[in-house]
């Protein structure tokens, strides 16, 4: 594959073959607790897409131009979290100030996102896989979309399950994990479509 196509390959791979939730189990906490309703899931999913697509390239810049020159790579965990938290806080304040409807639909989910492991995970994967700036952006965007697809699919299925009879011990998180397992199996069908590590 030519280098110019790599960002797009990474983009599709991060949605389908390497879905951050279904193959790496990242972002499970909010996935399990929020996926009860389609509306909240959509809001949270959108917020995740936005934050991933913006913080991943941002962290790339910080890592390449601040941490590497000063030899502080080992501080990346702390620095990435600070960047993510600061960015999320800023976005929330901006939204609150300038766009009321957008704040209502997106802003209220932003604080939840700072502690979402998937966001930090994407930044850490980006460092390990040595992506370029453009590829990092597409990787962040794709992972966000992948997470979004997984959570709305889960919310849709759980809404249909409301009237189903489930063994009492399996109710709640148990059945959600079983469904997630089936979804992961379905997504395994995509593997081999795009070969990327």
């Amino acid at each position: 594959m030519t280098d110019s196509l790599l960002p797009f390959a990474v983009f599709f791979a991060s949605i389908f073959t390497g879905n951050i939730l279904l193959t790496n189990y990242l972002g499970m906490c909010s996935f399990l607790s929020v996926s009860k309703e389609l509306k909240t899931s959509t809001g949270l999913g959108m917020a995740v897409i936005f934050v991933m697509a913006t913080t991943t390239p941002l962290n790339w810049i910080v890592y390449q131009y601040l941490l590497i020159p000063f030899g502080l790579e080992y501080l990346r965990f702390i620095v990435f979290i600070i960047v993510i938290a600061a960015f999320v806080q800023l976005t929330e304040m901006t939204l609150e100030r300038y766009s009321e409807p957008l704040y209502q639909s997106l802003g209220i989910f932003l604080p939840l996102i700072t502690v979402n492991c998937a966001i930090l995970g994407v930044s850490l994967f980006m460092v390990i896989r040595e992506y370029t700036l453009l590829t990092s952006f597409f990787f962040g965007l794709g992972s966000g979309i992948g997470w979004f697809i997984a959570i709305i699919a889960m919310a849709g299925i759980r809404q249909k399950l409301k009237n189903a009879k489930i063994p009492p011990g399996l109710e709640g998180p148990g059945i959600t994990l079983v469904i997630a397992g089936f979804m992961a199996m379905a997504f395994m069908g995509f593997s081999g479509m795009i070969a990327i590590s």
């Binding site: 279904l22 193959t23 790496n24 189990y25 063994p167 009492p168 011990g169 399996l170 998180p173 148990g174 059945i175 994990l177 079983v178 997630a180 397992g181 089936f182 992961a184 199996m185 395994m188």
Partner: peptide, 24 residues
């Protein structure tokens, strides 16, 4: 399938199921 991603979900779900039945 057990060492692939779905396996993790299924095993965790089954363990949670067993323990919760016991607690109940």
């Amino acid at each position: 399938i057990m060492i692939m991603p779905p396996g993790g979900f299924f095993v965790l779900a089954i363990i949670i199921w067993i323990i919760r039945e016991k607690i109940m």
